[in-house]
């Protein structure tokens, strides 16, 4: 299968997910849920089989994993901030629950009890890690990174394992972690406060002095560099990697773009 075919299939699934998540009243008050196309591409990977298109059933499986992802992301928007209107907050809570319930309903209708179990287990782990990150419960950067890895990867990793594609999980997990760190890096540069940055700052903080931006940035970049190397090694090791799959990972990982860590160092002097 070519990468363009991949994209075409991802488009169809994207539309299906949009349709399923549509709720007219929610739409009036809260932002439409963001559907991450890259994640759809990755969830397609277990079903890559020659030239054939994904089946209706496979499309539903992929969509349910996406419903869950969207549900969790929606609940991330429920904050303690008083800026949002009460109605907005109320509907954001309910939208998240509604999207989760669609995951259960879709899989219940197709009688995929096994996949319900596997994905529920992923949600459980993700929420445990989110609480640890929010409460800054770490003594080392490695511990924090491990939890971010779980938060970013669990749904897809459990999905891959369920469809007997375990061999891709380490590469997938590095890829998702890499991408999240890039986003966190960008947030830091834009002086945005995130739960991750707060957790990292709390590990790096010396006595009562808060960790400065350079220190946090350097910790992110060091990790990014390590993960990038890991990914490159894995892409070389897994042979033969079908060209479309290589392209899929490279699309998600802009190593060749100006965002590479070495270039960033050069740009920032």
């Amino acid at each position: 299968m070519k990468f363009t075919d991949y994209n075409h299939q991802a488009n169809i699934i994207h539309h299906y997910i949009e349709e399923q998540l549509h709720h007219s009243y929610l739409k009036e008050f809260i932002d439409q849920p963001y559907i991450d196309r890259n994640r759809i591409n990755f969830l397609l990977l277990p079903f890559m089989n020659g030239q054939r298109m994904v089946t209706q059933q496979e499309m539903k499986w992929i969509s349910t994993a996406m419903f869950l992802h969207v549900a969790l992301e929606t609940h991330e928007k429920v904050t303690i901030s008083e800026q949002d209107s009460l109605k907005e907050r109320q509907l954001t809570v309910l939208a998240g629950v509604y999207f989760s319930s669609l995951y259960y309903k879709t899989l219940a209708e197709s009688e995929d009890v096994g996949l319900i179990e596997v994905l529920s287990s992923a949600i459980k782990k993700i929420n445990e890690c989110k609480i640890s990150m929010y409460k800054e419960e770490y003594t080392s950067i490695e511990e924090l990174m491990e939890d971010v890895r779980i938060i970013e990867t669990s749904i897809a990793a459990h999905f891959y394992e369920f469809f007997h594609q375990k061999e891709w999980v380490p590469l997938l997990s590095d890829t998702f972690l890499y991408n999240r760190l890039l986003q966190e890096r960008l947030a830091l540069k834009n002086t945005q406060d995130t739960i991750f940055i707060n957790a990292l700052a709390s590990i790096l903080k010396q006595s009562e002095e808060p960790a400065d931006e350079h220190l946090i940035l350097s910790a992110i970049d060091t990790t990014l560099e390590k993960i990038q190397k890991n990914i490159e090694v894995q892409l070389d090791r897994i042979k033969p990697v079908p060209p479309a799959v290589r392209e899929l990972f490279m699309e998600f990982l802009p190593f060749t773009e100006p965002l590479t860590t070495t270039k960033l160092y050069a740009e920032e002097g």
């Binding site: 549900a71 609940h75 429920v78 809570v93 949600i123 929420n127 609480i131």
Partner: peptide, 16 residues
């Protein structure tokens, strides 16, 4: 609120 959301999602997942 955030702890409540994480806890609610966790318990819901355990239920399923």
């Amino acid at each position: 609120n955030r702890i409540a959301m994480y806890t609610g999602d966790y318990i819901f997942a355990r239920g399923l």
